[in-house]
Structure formats: C-alpha cells, structure tokens
Design a protein around this nucleic acid. Structure first.
Lengths: 116, 116
DNA sequence: TAAACATATGAACAATAGATCATATGATTG
DNA sequence: CAATCATATGATCTATTGTTCATATGTTTA
C-alpha cells in the first residue's frame, strides 16, 4: 500500500515493502493449519499423550480423562481421520494406538516452546 | 469401567485397562494446546512464513496476503501475545519479526507430517 | 438368540474465533 | 498544527467446534 512502484527502478527509498516472499502453496498451508488444529485441543492432546505410552481402548481413555465415552469417541474419529492414530478390534473392544512417530515429534517440539 | 480391581492382584485377565499412564500436568497440556491453536489458522501460518524470510511491516503483510490491515493487525496481536513475534517501531511503520527459532522448528515439524 | 457390553453416530446447543467495519491512537510531514 | 499515513482496537456477525444426550451398530456370552 506504500510503495507504488510502477517502474521497478525506484525501490530503494523505504527499507521494508517486500513483495518477493517465497511461500509454500496455499493448499499446503491449509493442510498444515489443519494438522495443527488437531493438536489445538487439550482433550485430543491428552488422548495422544496416553497413546504415547500404551495401546488403549475407548473406555480406558474415557476413564483416564474423566470424560464420557461419546466425547472420546468423537475425538478419536478426528484423530483417525487425520491418520494420527490407528486401531484394531480385540473382542468387543477397539484398541487405539499412534499411527507413527510424527505425533511424538510434534508434541515434543511444542513442549520445547511451552517450556517443560 | 471394565476392570474393577480392588485388590490389585487380579489384573492379568484383560490385556488393556491401564490406569497408570504418566501424563504432564493439566496446566501444561492446556498451554500446549494453546500454542498449537496459534498455528491452527492459515492466516497466522502465512504471516509466520513471511516473517521467516524477512522483517515486515503490517501493510506489507496485508498486501502480501491480500487481506485488509485490520485482520492482519488482529492476528499479529495474537502472535505477539504468545511471544512468537516481536516488533519495533521504524518511523510510522511497525516492523514485525520472529521472536525465536521455535517457530521454524514447529512449522518444519508439521510440514514433515503434511508431506512437503 | 436375548441380554450385556463396547463403540459409533447424529442432533442440538453453547462457546470460541476470524473477518469486517468503523473509529481511535500515534507518528510524520508540509 | 492540520493533514496524512500506519497501526491498533472495539463491536458485530458468521462459522466452526467440542460436549452431551439419545440411539444405533456390532460383538460376545449366557
């Protein structure tokens, strides 16, 4: 809004005003924001931390977090849609676990900024 | 809800049902979720990516993202409240920059899961 | 196969958040 | 010091999201 440079020759007057910033594609940035959205809820974070230690069924997670089964189930759906957790059936229970190591890496990285 | 183990002796019947999961304090988990909330919006992600390359004033960011000044200003407030960006005055402009290296680390970590 | 258990799902509701508009604050310049 | 430029802020509106309740689906067992 400041530098109406039509000639391309007069761009040294004011220090700022860069328009040549390199940035990933919009679609990728949306995906990235969506990924962080998953981690942006304390219930989901707690679920992920729990699964960091052990494969768990829905009712155990619910008990551990002191929340009702439905809430946990809804959040697990979000987590599996984003491929952060996987699951397998064991009798009537369904056991959830982390899909890969990225979860731990992302949580650790965040913790580093939060500070312990 | 499944394993009503009152004696502590009969816990080998069913594989799951762990109640001894180690987890960071609630307050820390909330802070962590709050941190990820900051990254959970594509506008803020774009601002951070821009600042990754250069110190920028508000109007340049607005122009770069094709958004109005007020929206950017509101988001910059969020970013500075969470100590992810810092700023200094230069004449009438206010120049924003990243507060530390954590931003890049967190973005990179997220990108690794999004895949490129 | 009926009852009990485990999980999933849909609707409804309250709370939160991002964008816009209007306006206020603050700095520069003629 | 009035006008202009740059940024910040408050109010409003809309959209999104997390939880709960009720219920459906699916599995085991008596």
């Amino acid at each position: 809004m400041t530098n109406n440079d039509k000639t391309g020759l007069s761009s040294l007057e004011s220090a700022p005003n860069r328009t040549d910033i390199e940035m990933p594609d919009d679609e990728i940035l949306y995906d990235l924001a969506d990924l962080f959205k998953i981690f942006a809820d304390s219930t989901r974070i707690k679920i992920l931390y729990a699964l960091l230690e052990s494969e768990l069924c829905v009712c155990d997670i619910a008990q551990l977090l002191g929340m009702n089964q439905s809430a946990i189930s809804h959040q697990l759906r979000v987590l599996k849609q984003s491929k952060l957790v996987k699951y397998r059936r064991e009798g009537k229970a369904i056991l959830y676990s982390l899909a890969d190591g990225h979860v731990r890496a992302i949580l650790d990285q965040g913790m580093e900024h939060v500070g312990e």
